[in-house]
C-alpha cells in the first residue's frame, strides 16, 4: 500500500463525528428516479440467500482489489459460500477494517448466516457470494453499473437466488 501512514490517518479521521458528517454532506451520490421492487413470494426458510459486500473481501488466493487506482476498482470477486474466515482477507484502503480483519462478519456475515440457517430461519446459501470495494468514483461507474452489477445479477439468477443481503463497508 502506498502512503500507508497517510491513508491510515485519513481513515482515523472518519471516527470524528463532524469529519464524517462533513464528508456525508459533501458527497455526491449517484441518484435514482425509480425504486426497484421485487416482493418476497415465499417463506424465508425456503429462500436461497446470497450475501454481497462492498467491504473489499476476497479469498486469500484470489487477486486483491486494485488500490493503485485512486478512482477505485469496479471489478468483483467471487467467494464460495462454504468459505471460512481463514480463507478470506480484505483489500480496501478507504475504511478502517482493523476490526473486520479480526471478525469478517462485520462486513460479510457468513457465521451469522450459518447460525440462522441452523435455526431454520432462512434457507440454503447460494453457491457463491460476491464482493466489491465500496470506493468507486465517476470514471468507473459505467463499468460498475453496466458490467459488474449485471454479471453479478446474472450469476445470482443462475443460482436460483431468492433473496440478497447487501452489506456496506
Amino acid at each position: 500500500m502506498k502512503n500507508k501512514p497517510i491513508k491510515r490517518f485519513k481513515m482515523a479521521l472518519f471516527k470524528i463525528p463532524w469529519v464524517r458528517q462533513r464528508w456525508e454532506e459533501k458527497f455526491t451520490p449517484v441518484t435514482s428516479e425509480a425504486i426497484p421492487w421485487t416482493p418476497l413470494t415465499k417463506p424465508l426458510a425456503r429462500c436461497t440467500i446470497a450475501l454481497i459486500t462492498t467491504g473489499g473481501v476476497h479469498l486469500k488466493n484470489d487477486a486483491p482489489f486494485n488500490m493503485d487506482d485512486k478512482d477505485g476498482d469496479p471489478s468483483y470477486r467471487t467467494i464460495p459460500s462454504t468459505a471460512t474466515k481463514s480463507d478470506l482477507m480484505i483489500t480496501h484502503d478507504y475504511y478502517d477494517h482493523t476490526d473486520a480483519d479480526s471478525d469478517i462478519n462485520l462486513v460479510l456475515p457468513i457465521d451469522i448466516l450459518r447460525a440462522c440457517q441452523e435455526e431454520g430461519i432462512v434457507g440454503r446459501s447460494s453457491e457463491f457470494f460476491y464482493s466489491l470495494m465500496g470506493h468507486i468514483v465517476l470514471p468507473h461507474l459505467p463499468y460498475l453499473v453496466e458490467k459488474t452489477a449485471k454479471e453479478i445479477a446474472t450469476a445470482l439468477q443462475g443460482q436460483g437466488v431468492d433473496i440478497v443481503f447487501l452489506v456496506p463497508a
Binding site: 471516527k15 435514482s32 473486520a100 462486513v107 451469522i112 452489506v167 463497508a169
Partner: peptide
C-alpha cells in the same frame, strides 16, 4: 439518493455494519 428497495439504517462507524467485532 440511491433509493434501494429495503434498507436498514444504522448510525455505526464504517467497517461495522453488523456491529462490534466478536459481539455475536
Amino acid at each position: 439518493a440511491i433509493k434501494p428497495p429495503r434498507t436498514y439504517f444504522l448510525r455505526y462507524p464504517f467497517g461495522h455494519a453488523l456491529g462490534e467485532a466478536g459481539n455475536r
